[in-house]
Amino acid sequence: MSALSTPATEQADPARDTDDLAGRPVRPARYPLRWAASAVVAVLAAMFVNMLLTNPAWKWHVVVEYLFAESVLNALWLTIQLTLYGTVIGFALGVILALMRLSSSPLLVAVAWVYIWAFRSIPLIVQLLFWYNLAILYNQISFGIPFGPSFYSVGTMDLISPMAAAVLGLALHQAAYSAEIVRSGVLSVDQGQREAAAALGIPWVRQVRRIILPQAMRTIMPTAGNEVISLFKGTSVVYIMALGELFYRIQVIYNRTGDVVPMLMVATLWYIVLTTLLSIVQFYVERHYAKGALRTLPPTPVQRLRRAASTLRARIAPTRGSTP
């Protein structure tokens, strides 16, 4: 009994003890080690910021000068366009390829499999150069009846500009990866959902669009977010085609001015800003598709901020009122 070393105050009056146990204030547990670790990290963070700001070699004034320079903004816009086209065309093709792989036609399955195999095997940079140099292989592109007469011919150089080659390369590359992501999403949807839709006689296209894909999106989104962000940064490989996207433009500038590090910082800052925006978009898209999957949706950061502000206000207001 005494070995349990119950505090004397507790034993003094057991009757009172049970009386107002529920009414007692709760004292939170303390974690001194956690505080110590936080202090160490705070000091390290301060050192890091200090290092960035006090070393003149970073040349922050150059960063500021070029951050919003017109040529940089134009290059950024091209990067955004490449990301957008790559994502939209890539995922559209990806959905088609995923459905082909899941179809019951062996030919469609095989074609989709070979496509994915091929485009995942070829490095993006090699593929881009292929498209860029397509004119060497075929200098005319004709539209018409397969194996039959052609109605319209166009020079490959005219049709496939560096921009078109870049979009083609990025989108086709992206499609192979997107296809697998979409397929993983479709496989994650319970078999019963498809059966229920079929039992209700809902048309096939509608089954896919309304029942299967929205549920698959829950699994697709986290990986797709990764893909879009890595595509956004990956667009920098098109610099080999002398296309004036962000990274290429930055290189051109620092080769002229010699401010290598500050110019790389300009690119870094823009990549960070846009990745942040994409992450925010991803959060809200994921939240949208969580509808019904969770009993109550978690609050958005904005809602959380508002709630924190209102509790803070509530906490301050009564103390103000009590002081005369």
């Binding site: 319970d190 019963g192 959902q193 059966e195 229920a196 839709a197 079929a198 039992a199 209700l200 006689g201 809902i202 048309p203 096939w204 309304r210 029942i211 929205p214 549920q215 598709y289 509808k291 019904g292 999957a293």
Partner: peptide, 28 residues
């Protein structure tokens, strides 16, 4: 699919569409 309109089916595990409201489940 069209013929199945004449045959209602109720599953052991319900198989409601979790991302649609009750009303949307029924009107789909």
């Amino acid at each position: 699919l069209r013929q199945r309109g004449a045959i209602g089916f109720v599953f052991q595990s319900f198989n409601l569409f979790p991302h649609l409201t009750v009303l949307e489940n029924i009107t789909e």
